[in-house]
Design a protein around this nucleic acid. Structure first.
Lengths: 172, 172
DNA sequence: TATTGTTATACTCTATAACTATA
DNA sequence: TATAGTTATAGAGTATAACAATA
């Protein structure tokens, strides 16, 4: 159990962290804002899934997910196929154009991070990833995703197997 | 220099970190959204300052800062005094009511973090704070604030001295 | 009756641009 | 002419609630 002053400092860090996220958002293509990028990236990492699963991974309400999904579907980056097992549901799947977009997104964000973190060691980056992953898990977050596969270099090559399927937490 | 797969994973962590921030935002009083809380917290930590300085610490455009400041001023949590040295400028200062609000905000966020991170060690929290601070610094961020004072327990008792005054980066 | 997903509405945060007042 | 700050406007993200279709 950490100290009160630490929690206050951590809260401040979390509050100020938005600036980093905004910097990362600024390098995205103008037709692919952060919400769309999140949809594409998760579909690439976890493979085809339903709306409800995607909403869980994004940790936002399904109404929000629906809007983002509509946006990327209109641009031809994903397809919404009917679910033969449940006619209410739709299976989301990346198109080839969507996979290309994922590669572009990955390239852009990787370039920015490589530039900004040029003086970070491999171990330091790994530590930060590990602690951020754990913090999200401590907040009841199901998106602990891919920690073990971090060093494989396979993350940008297309869909990979789901890694951890823990809770069924609904964000709202 | 870290590996490409690490940067991709870090980008994903940053993207998903919004969920933690939203959780933290949900516990705020309804009349004090995150923008207002940021203003109050920074004034408490760094003491009186001008709009431009606050905008720099918040890492948002001054137009955004102006709106947040108006919001908290309307509620009597800060005062905007004329700057005798520059009639264009205004000096922002917490009122007693504002200091009380800061205590309430601190209490709420500390409680949430203490609950969520009950199984974290003191050292782990310190590591996360250190790495988040460094990441923000690597992103050209001037708000590295208070790292040394983390363990003093004085952060919630009112205004404290500014700690680090590095760059003069303008967010936009 | 409960669940999946969509849509309408509203709120917060942010940025750009135009504007006022002062340096 | 440049700077400090305000305001108007627009865009993105999110949540709640009402709704349709299906389980």
């Amino acid at each position: 159990m950490a100290q009160q002053a630490q929690f206050e400092e951590l809260a401040r860090q979390l509050s100020a962290f938005g600036a980093v996220k905004r910097d990362l958002g600024r390098i995205l293509p103008s037709d692919c804002p952060t919400g769309s990028a999140g949809v594409l990236t998760l579909l690439s990492r976890h493979g085809d899934m339903r709306m409800s699963k995607l909403a869980e991974l994004l940790a936002v309400d399904m109404s929000v997910t629906s809007r983002h999904v509509t946006h990327v579907a209109e641009r031809g980056w994903i397809e919404r196929a009917p679910d033969p097992a449940d006619k209410r549901s739709r299976i989301l799947r990346l198109t080839p154009a969507g996979e290309a977009k994922v590669c572009e997104l990955s390239r852009r964000s990787t370039e920015l991070l490589a530039e900004r973190l040029s003086d970070w060691s491999d171990d330091e980056v790994g530590q930060l990833i590990r602690l951020m992953t754990r913090l999200r898990a401590s907040f009841g977050d199901c998106r602990t995703t891919l920690t073990r596969a971090t060093h494989t270099g396979a993350a940008h090559t297309g869909a990979i197997a789901p890694v951890i399927e823990t809770t069924t937490r609904t964000p709202a």
